[in-house]
Amino acid sequence: MNGPVVALCPCRPGESLDVGPLRAAKTVAGEAGAPVAAILVEAADRQIEQARSEGDLVVWDVRHADLSPLDDAERRGPVFVEALKQSGLGDFRLAVLPAGHVGAALAAAIGKSFDAAVLGACAEIVLTAGGVEARRSTCGGRVEIVVAADGRCVVATRDASQRGPSRRVGEVRPLRLATPLPDRRPVERVGAAGRDRSVATARVVIAGGRGIGGDEGFDRLRDLAGCLDGAVGGSLPAVDAGWVPVSAQVGQSGQFVAPEVYVAVGVSGTPQHLAGVGAAARIVAINTDVDADIFRFADVGIVAAWRDVVPALVRRLRSSPEAFSPDERDP
């Protein structure tokens, strides 16, 4: 097999491009000397430019006459399938998607249409003579398995830490589609769901766990997030208790966050939780238990109850002199 490695990028208006699949595709293809391409569906100019600046690859700018920003994977899947066919990339060896439920739904559609093996959210992906081999975390982050498949494969990745933009820029090719799509589902949208800013793209994440004990504590975490231009997330028990929405759940079964600073308050630091925190994040932990696992991974720790620390920290940050400008921030 010598087909291309293709990054499939679902785009949302107003969000920056998730470059994880693109970089993973480039790394995997580069090691094997395979061609690499990216398919961006309904991307904004800024997102196309972001993909192009990632380097030597063909960027397909795909638009479908009948796709709306609210359409879900049920209608986006067929657009990616058709784009792969019409761009001549249907002989792909590997398709790389972003990890998460949208990527998983698209992987299923592509797996079915191209009879490709769906391998899940993987790291250390390599092309083999006949297919792909990759590493996947299982058993709540406690066991790693290596899976291999022959023929076409589909993987998801959440690792954006690979090679960054290069000096060469990619070539953009437009592709306009009008193939019939499945009927829209009768999904009714009511009110506003997430009150909080998204944790996925924030530079600072303040995460609360079971130790916060209630809504009032989360209000104080929101105050802290306000001081730090951050977003509030939570552990699974905090979501179960209704203190934080499921869209802000951090961990293996929630959001993967890669902030510069991760402030974990009343979080014990289980593998299932930390699987959602990027390795480069500086971790600050506030916890009453000096033996809590979170301190094994933290850069800075305070052993105290959140009530003694968080409100005082908010007061201090609010009253201290003018904030730094972004250029003065620590690299």
Partner: peptide
Amino acid sequence: NQVAELAAYLQPWRALR
């Protein structure tokens, strides 16, 4: 003191007013 030290550590990420 701990709060003061943590505030200093977090200073580079303070929201701009």
